[in-house]
């Protein structure tokens, strides 16, 4: 009952500020890249094993709620939230020390990450 209409003021970003911020941002990016190139280019090691269980069955998300359906299925935002748009559920693989962990996360369907996966799945199905 507290829906209000505040007239949105147009955010005016000072072009000078924007340019300065951009410069700093790019400098930081550049510096990050260069430092890594020097450090690690020589011997890149590979440590990308993915535990098999990640590919198995339905995982539990961290709320203990069972996520219905297989990963990659389209799920509808339960809250019926903003626009009720369809997201895709993915597993994010992270390392805690040397142990791998997976977490569930919703990614918009139109994200390039999942689109390419879908395409490949489709391609593989055809083979």
């Amino acid at each position: 009952d507290d829906a209000i209409q505040v007239r949105q003021k147009v955010v005016e970003v000072d072009p000078l500020e924007e340019a300065e911020f951009d410069r700093e941002f790019r400098a930081l990016m550049q510096e990050s890249l260069e430092s890594r190139k020097l450090e690690l280019r020589a011997r890149p090691t590979l440590n990308m094993t993915i535990p098999m269980n990640v590919f198995e069955g339905s995982a539990r998300d961290h709320h203990g709620r069972s996520m219905e359906g297989e990963s990659g299925d389209e799920v509808v935002d339960e809250e019926g939230g903003v626009g009720n748009k369809k997201d895709v559920c993915v597993k994010v693989l992270v390392k805690r020390g040397n142990k791998q962990q997976t977490k569930q996360m919703l990614i918009p369907k139109d994200c390039s990450l999942v689109q390419s996966t879908k395409q490949k799945e489709a391609a593989e199905l055809e083979e």
């Binding site: 990640v54 693989l93 996360m105």
Partner: peptide, 18 residues
């Protein structure tokens, strides 16, 4: 992020050097 192989598994990967 990149997606791993064919399943909907994603990981974080650094741009340089990985």
């Amino acid at each position: 992020f990149i997606s791993a192989k064919t399943e909907s598994v994603v990981v974080l990967l650094c741009r340089e050097p990985c």
